[in-house]
Design a protein around this nucleic acid. Structure first.
Lengths: 334, 334
DNA sequence: CTCAGTTATGTAATCGATTACATCTCCATC
DNA sequence: GATGGAGATGTAATCGATTACATAACTGAG
């Protein structure tokens, strides 16, 4: 492999000059520039980025830590991140934790090792102090998730109010026994959606039956299994608010499996508005998150941190909206 | 940030000794080892990997080039890759080309720049000579896709035979007008599936009506739109073989949109067996690819290349199987 | 023609870790 | 007690590019 020295030798200049041509840093005669370019061409030279990295102590690479890459919600957010990254010449390294907190911590360590210039976490189960400590020294942005009381730049929606909105929609349709399929309780996001659900019940003076809240893990399977449990209750719910669309689809399948119909027997509301939400039948009523935009904004915040131009607003709350489709039907007669 | 020199100074040893402790390369007294470890602890030292990379000229990072990360098929393959990579201490960099060939070429260039030790391509639209040239010097593995006549390690299924199998299943059920929703024709994989479809028709002496073959792009939308076109034909098909599950689901939705039923009016077969294939109603008859295993094997091949232990078999063809579900119904009476 | 100021180019230090090689210490053996 | 060899540690070169600083070449004003 040709190195910058070989190019310098062939073009009869110093390595400094070659570097200047490469970096497009002025002060090079057109004539020498041409000679250098010819040498590069002739030797098929590609600069070894590791040398550059070491000297400049930056890699122009950011890491995105994802809890589950097979989840379409996250791949959409990722797309937003990639779009902005590409535009600014950054590479995106992907860390899939597969919901394993230890992996999350491991990835965090890439920062002091200088392997990446910054990180975006789409998950935040890690100890808060750890992240805060790291965030003091290195660029870190949270997206979708956040850490209570931590002053770390964050992009998300208001999960409490949107969960309340979703639940209220069911109440408005006349439902009184509304179940909630939550996400894992060690995730703030899940707790927020649960809280929104509870707030809506309280505001309408509906009883909060603990048996109606089941903790899932955002997978289709958990939605399916927990719904079977709900349906086996002495007084089963007439509506289910699931903390994401995949669990909502699982819920619908379970209702059908038991011979019920959606929305007639049980109404279902999801969360996220992944593509399948509009394709599946019945199509899902759900909370639409601006996934792509969340990714974009998160990457923009991160760039601002990396480049030292501190962003004005460090905590971004993006608008969501309730999309009404077929899975919760019209007003309830009974 | 503390560097290895600071640690050496504090522990009163040379940097060489510190490095030996870090690398766990013997020949260090337990006593000095302890002293070094204490210094590392005290300074909260993290080795800067860029230094190591430069010296050793390897990054223990591999890049996976994916045409579309939002496609669940690829994220499953990715999981298989990650599993093996993690086990061997490699990191996985993700390159999402969003179906843009130019990006594919750009990623290829990370190899001579030494940014990554090897690459796995889950797409191969790039010029064959380019890849071959690069593959002579650097570890490259193709998965899912392959390049005709190129001697590059590859993991895939036999797309021709599996497409034939899928089509034959429809013929066996009594269908005579079978349409094919293909992938983009600049992809070998799409051409193979088309060929398998044509072979099946030919073997059963069925007419190959060009109007029944429509070129899609693997998205739900293309499946939907092309099916509307098919249904508008003077003699519409009674069965559709789609080159992937997402287009198959699009096809089903289009049939329904036109008031038809699946499988009664039109039978549909998909390809890949993504999770949604079994959840969607009617559940999809489809070709199941061993996605996770494709990823695993690809990464294993790549590791063998990187570590110089040439793999015995360089072209792996994994078994697929036809999964029969509800979308093509039973034998046809008419 | 001279001198200051600009522009082009070269020299060599630097980033941080790894490692070939040199040196030193210690111990066992004869 | 001399010798050899193994083991521990240190010295310094090295990876490849960048860049501070030095120097050379050139330009234009006086």
């Amino acid at each position: 492999m040709a190195s910058i020295k070989d190019v310098a030798k062939r073009a009869n200049v110093s390595t400094a000059t070659v570097s200047r041509v490469l970096r497009n840093a002025g002060n090079v005669t057109e004539e020498t520039r041409q000679r250098v370019l010819e040498a590069i061409e002739a030797l098929n030279y590609q600069p070894n980025v590791l040398g550059r990295y070491l000297r400049r102590m930056e890699t122009e690479t950011v890491l995105v830590v994802v809890p589950d890459i097979t989840n379409p919600f996250f791949s959409k957010v990722l797309r937003g991140i990639e779009a902005v990254a590409l535009e600014h010449g950054y590479q995106v390294l992907l860390g899939d934790t597969q919901n394993d907190v230890r992996l999350e911590e491991q990835y965090l360590n890439l920062l002091p090792q200088r392997q990446v210039d910054g990180m975006i976490f789409l998950t935040a189960r890690i100890r808060k102090e750890l992240v805060e400590e790291m965030a003091r020294q290195f660029p870190i942005v949270l997206a979708c998730e956040y850490l209570e009381g931590a002053d770390i730049p964050t992009v998300s929606i208001d999960n409490i109010s949107s969960a309340r909105k979703a639940t209220e929609h069911l109440i408005r349709l006349g439902h009184r026994r509304i179940a909630h399929l939550s996400g894992p309780m060690n995730i703030i996001l899940s707790r927020d959606r649960l809280r929104g659900y509870q707030q809506a019940l309280a505001q309408h003076e509906l009883e909060a039956d603990a048996a109606l809240v089941q903790e899932g893990d955002f997978t289709y399977e958990s939605g399916y299994n927990l719904t079977l449990k709900l349906l086996a209750l002495e007084k089963p719910p007439t509506a289910i608010f699931a903390a994401n669309d995949e669990m909502a689809i699982g819920a619908i399948k379970a209702v059908r499996h038991r011979g019920g119909r959606v929305p007639d027997d049980v109404a279902v509301v999801g969360f996220d508005d992944i593509q399948m939400a509009s394709i599946f039948e019945p199509s899902l009523t759900t909370i639409a998150q601006p996934m792509f935009e969340i990714g974009q904004k998160a990457m923009e915040l991160l760039l601002a941190l990396i480049e030292g131009t501190s962003a004005r607003r460090r905590q971004l709350v993006l608008p969501d909206r309730l999309v009404i489709r077929d899975s919760c039907g019209g007003e309830r007669s009974a």
